[in-house]
Amino acid sequence: MELKTLLTSVAIVGFSAGLVSAQADVTLAVEGEVISTSASAPAFAENLDTVYSGWLFRKLETRSLQMDDFDNPAFVFVDKGIDLFEKVDGTEGKACASCHEDVEDFVGLRPAMPRVEDGTLVTMENLVNECRTERMGAEPWKYSGGQMTAMTALIGLQSRGMSINVAVDGDAAPFFERGKDLYYQRVGQLDMSCSNCHEDNYGVMIRADHLSQGQINGFPAYRLKNAKLNSAHARFKGCMKNIRATPYKEGGDEFKALELYLAARGNGLSVETPSVRN
């Protein structure tokens, strides 16, 4: 039997076992609203039937943290995001709120990010810093720093429950292809690609960790491990370090392309920002 097929069938068996043990509560409901945590895989993801949110792979105690906006520790950072949204910063004497009267106006933005503008792939972080530097006359925020993650969490929250729907055709096609290549490319001392774990072996235990599909529908995510919000690029960097590869730059072309590809692999999943993960 071909190795890949064998690994896939092992993964399916492993995943079924993994999911069965976690079967007790597979409904994510937040503040009374049910959020779906799985969907049919997009057509281009040939090796997947169903896409599953990372929420399903965590223990019940962790999952329950995401089901209440107070128990969810991310919300103290969302509160910081609100403060930042209203804070005047920069030479122009403006706050985000000066132009964007209501943060709720950002509904629908998160599910479509990243997107192509004038031939360049832009992420939400890029949009925020572009506003800051070009319209507020303010210093750009560190790509994965506390202020930026607080803001992207606040903006992403406005689209919570909406289906991810990033464009992968037209102008986005070359970036999508680049991201796909990166996803399947083996790197590092451990010579592994994203797909080795997240496509071939999701559902299986790696030591005591329950491997997910590596979906990014919940980012920025509050991780129990570092007790703060983590951007997708920060997580990519961590993963690359774990396989002993030199990580690409956060905010750089590779991670942006990878973010587009991963977002697309999760097309159909719901925005869970800000999620709680391990």
């Binding site: 790696i206 030591r207 391990n278």
Partner: peptide
Amino acid sequence: VTIGGCGG
């Protein structure tokens, strides 16, 4: 208390 897979 366990150790995650990728040292994570």
